[in-house]
Design a protein around this nucleic acid. Structure first.
Length: 495
RNA sequence: GCCCCCGUAGCUCAACUGGCUCGAGCAACCGCCUUUUAAGCGGUGGGAUGAGGGUUCGAGUCCCUCCGGGGGCACCA
């Protein structure tokens, strides 16, 4: 029980606390004894630290001003004590040095200021000057404790390194590591740039059900939950596709949804069980129009977030066909081997591994993911997928057996999947039936038959192009991160 | 699910082939110094080495099981 309290942060007697925690508890009690409220209600009129810095960018070394600023943030460092000391205060926008002088504050206030712990939240009023060493500094005239911190912050030089702690206690990562703060601000900018782009191009943002009586729109295993009042099983959505196409039927013409999908599958550096996806659908457009909009969107986002990396997102991107890319990388012609045995033989003759259980579509996927995808570093579209892999895409207008579909790759990673949408309800019904046949053959990740969706298509859906873009992966690309867990605030972890 | 690596103080890290009471920096506490920049100097406290079992005169170190994390494989976006 003592251990549980120490780790769980309840309020055990001091004797059972590690010394570093007990010391902070003692200070908390001392503050209250002095009549100081350690958790006041507000502190108005705060200026961002970055704004204070900007206001005095021109100050010479050693130059003083009488300009007063009010800032608030977390105490991050302290140098010196006694008659004069320097402290660092950090807010979301940056860090600023504070100078505490006993001749300004008086002995009692000086003592109180210097006895705050690293990690305490402070409000400060001070006058700006630039130190001899050139550091913009606020000379503290007045200060207020805004919240007492009862746990020590991570080490101030090395930051928080432990991967597990960074993910489980992201607040500590954000406190300790400025790069983490910047990364998640970039993520926010990516998302707002996506919305701005689509809003400007006439798309309307919609929200469709996350809890669905029937899941669909992708090949994946769903999470299952239960609605008590309705007494029935509901699924967390694996895609927004089918509902969004019903809105195209409804005449909304250009729609997008930006939100979470959920897939009950393994974790990896590229897969989190809940992940953020953008899907947009455009009436009277085909997949070539969508490809063009996709590359313009990504280029716009890169520009808006100030992308500094090595990729060149300027349209037009590299373009290949899927079959051409596989032929080029492996020498296997999937279009000349349209059934499993022939394809397996072609792969073996090239010395490629052939997983025994794989169906023809799965072998194609194997060739793509193992031999082509890793080579697609610069932004690249692969066009024209086999119909077997794409039950929701419209057949190719000139190439039998293929559909009008593309996927986009950056940095060896798939970031988007798009097609000219299948709008012939009878053909869509047949495609679902084929999927159903696969399901009875044991494949758990096929698309269930969705009668409501078929009825919507029967109502008449205009020719439409649509796309899904993995936002977490797009953020990975924009920030150079190699793991999705670095760009998701609270990635999935075991209990 | 399988394979490999990792888990030492609040944080960042040490500890030769098994060998004295597991050390140091930051943080904390008590002082000294004062325009510092990872401030400096002196002193003090803080650890069931992830958990449990085993081998051994002796285990942070070797073996087994479990928990957690990372990487890879498989599956997928």
């Amino acid at each position: 029980m003592a251990e549980e309290e120490a780790h769980g942060g309840a309020m055990p007697p001091d004797g059972e606390l590690p010394e570093v925690l007990a010391a902070r508890r003692r200070k908390l009690d001392a503050l209250r004894d002095e009549g100081i409220e350690p958790f006041p209600h507000e502190f108005r009129g705060v200026e961002p630290i970055a704004a204070v810095r900007d206001a005095h960018a021109e100050l010479e070394h050693g130059e003083e001003t009488d300009v007063r600023h009010r800032v608030a943030g977390r105490l991050a460092a302290r140098r010196g004590q006694g008659k004069m000391a320097f402290l660092d205060l950090v807010d979301r926008s940056g860090r600023i040095q504070l100078q505490a002088r006993v001749d300004v504050l008086g002995a009692e206030a000086m003592e109180r200021l210097l006895h705050f712990d690293l990690g305490d939240l402070l409000g400060v009023d001070g006058t700006a000057f630039r130190s001899r060493r050139g550091e913009l500094t606020l000379r503290v005239q007045d200060f207020t404790l805004l919240a007492k911190s009862l746990r020590p912050p991570p080490e101030k030089h090395h930051g928080l390194q432990d991967t597990e702690t960074r993910f489980r206690r992201r607040e500590l990562d954000l406190i300790a590591n400025a790069e983490a703060r910047e990364l998640f601000l970039t993520r926010a900018h990516v998302i707002s740039a996506v919305r701005r782009f689509l809003d400007r191009e006439g798309f309307v943002e919609v929200e469709t059900p996350v809890l669905q009586p029937l899941y669909g729109g992708a090949a994946a295993r769903p999470f299952t939950t239960h609605h008590n009042a309705l007494s029935r099983t509901l699924y967390l959505r694996i895609a927004t596709e089918l509902y969004l196409k019903r809105l195209i039927v409804g005449g909304l013409e250009r729609v997008y949804e930006l939100g979470k999908d959920f897939r009950n599958e393994g974790l990896s550096p590229k897969h989190n069980p809940e992940f953020t996806v953008l899907e947009f659908y455009e009436a009277y457009a085909d997949y070539l129009d969508i490809a063009s909009r996709c590359e313009r969107l990504v280029a716009y986002v890169a520009d808006q977030v100030g992308y500094q990396g090595a990729h060149d997102f300027t349209p037009p991107w590299h373009r290949e066909t899927l079959a051409g890319a596989i032929l080029d990388r492996t020498g296997v012609d999937i279009l000349a081997a349209r059934e499993r045995g022939a394809l397996a033989a072609a792969m073996r003759s090239r010395g490629l591994a052939v997983p025994a259980q794989d169906t023809w579509p799965q072998l194609v996927d194997e060739l793509l993911s193992k031999h082509v995808e890793p080579t697609l570093i610069e932004p690249t579209f692969l066009f024209d997928y086999p119909v077997e892999l794409s039950p929701l895409a419209k057949r190719h207008r000139s190439r039998p057996g293929l559909v009008e579909r593309f996927e986009a790759f950056i940095g060896g990673m798939e970031i988007a999947n798009a097609f000219t949408e299948l709008n012939d309800p009878d053909e869509q019904r047949r495609r679902f039936e084929e999927q159903r046949a696969l399901a009875s053959a044991g494949d758990e990740e096929v698309q269930p038959y969705d009668e409501a969706f078929i009825q919507a298509l029967e109502q008449g859906m205009p020719p439409t192009g649509g796309i899904g873009i993995g936002i977490d992966r797009l953020v990975m690309v924009m920030t150079g991160m190699r793991s999705i867990r670095e760009v998701v605030l609270f990635p999935a972890m075991r209990d």
